[in-house]
Amino acid sequence: MAGGLFSTERGRTVALVTPPFIYALLLLALPLGAIILFSFWQKDGYDVVPTFTLENYRAFLDGEVYQVLLGRSLKVSAIVTVITVILAYPIAYFISFRVPNNRKSLWLFLITIPFWTSYLVRVFLWKVILGYNGVINSGLLQIGLIDEPLTFILYSVNSVIITLAHAFAPFAILPIFVALEKIDRSLLEAAQDLGENRVTTFLRVTLPLSMPGLMAAILIVFIPTIGDYVTPELMGGSGGKLIANMIQTQFLQLNNAPLGAALAIIAMLCVTLISLLLIFLNRRWLRV
């Protein structure tokens, strides 16, 4: 027993696995378990009573406002994801295929620079750009293209979408870039050699081979946007609130943690289902 814990293969395995296990337990499993538990408990005045109930879930099924908010959340997330990924792909493609190798890290670095500032600051900057007297409106007014400020770009779902799409851009660019970088360039030459032009080479080789990165980008953007409440709070106005704002309201303003927890669980289940569906479709049709 000279070596103690590290003397056996099993001991080493346990020693290696323990710290991340404790980490996962404390930071992931415990909060999640607490939320699940809360969602089945009762609210009594300002307190939460540990009595089992399905009342919170029933409230969701009966409350049209929750369903509307969740539906809007899913819709906004889907639109943000599509916009972000469609805009990110050409950028990632350009860096991977057109920028010389020794400049690539510089380009990636430049792309991440705006994200050194706080998320909150960036949201407020979008207010400056999109606002009633913002850069866009005053600019368009100055050159006489519009007579009065555009209102559809601020305090609406649209402004939420614009802000979120910008916020998540690098998270979409990076995985797509990595997937494109991994593509052996001789495969593209081979496709051309076998009769394909640039466009068909892209469709038959580059795009399918970059699908893992594309999927990662879609999930990385889609999942956190559902839970984002800062942007809709600040940019959404009254019509642009999302399910996360309702969860926040339930927890912090209405002191109804059980209902907030139930809403959180339902939103999470939606995300899980959609993600699984995407992964399944990807496996089934693209075999990557």
Partner: peptide, 19 residues
């Protein structure tokens, strides 16, 4: 362009499409 030439190539890396 290569796709319009009467040539085909066996690449050093073989360039087999992995997907």
């Amino acid at each position: 362009a290569p796709n319009h030439r009467p040539t085909n190539m066996v690449f050093q890396s073989y360039a087999i499409f992995p997907h």
